[in-house]
Amino acid sequence: MSKLIKFNIDGQECMAEEGRYIVDAAKDNGVYIPTLCNIPGLKPKGSCRMCTVKVNGRLMTSCTTPVSDGMEIENHIEEIENYRKMIVELMFVSGNHFCPSCEKSGSCDLQALAYRYQMMVPRFPYTFSQKDVDGSSPLIIKDQNRCIMCKRCIRAIIDNEGRSFFTFKNRGIKLEVIMDKEMGQRMNEAEAEKAMEICPVGAILKKEKGYDVPIGQRKFDMKPIGSEIEN
């Protein structure tokens, strides 16, 4: 085990193993930092920017920054929480998120964070952009309308030769996640299951799976997001 170090979050003294990512170290100390793109155990890719904190006065993503001794971290402060709320709102307006008709409603991280940040209506205008639904794979449906480009499927759903089933296409505002047509055909049950599970929103759904847990009993219906960490 590597060395234990001290750091603090919003004035609270914390301890962690040196080199642990801030988001995990915070969790160990009962502090919740919201994330969307992070997959514990996998190399982080700070793309959603939700977990942004201030480290010694500088904005950093806590999923990619290791803790070090004496670090001063600001997490639950107005500036940061306002950024996070803006990010959630940006995601809502850039896609087409109709929660009431979404199979993932209640288990969706984005929806849960919108509740956490008490988003009533996004402050930004909706873009109503046209996006595609890809149902070509026998096992899954990929709905670009709900995709938040977190890159989780791209990073996690990989075949034996190290190739991703999903990749990005284009750049900037035109960025989208696409599925390799041929690999989509030969995706197996376990990969499909994992893809749906790894997707923080409802952009990847397993066919014939949608509503097996009734609304009202889903993950965040029972306990709000973050409550498993915060005491």
Binding site: K45, G46, S47, C48, R49, M50, I87, L90, M91, V93, S94, F124, P125, T127, I148, M149, K151, F168, N170, R171, G172, I173, K174, L175
Partner: peptide, 21 residues
Amino acid sequence: FIDESCGSCSTCRIMPAVMLD
């Protein structure tokens, strides 16, 4: 900037277009 963003960060992917509007 809108054309040249890599699109990875939610902020840089979406906000400049919102501001341009």
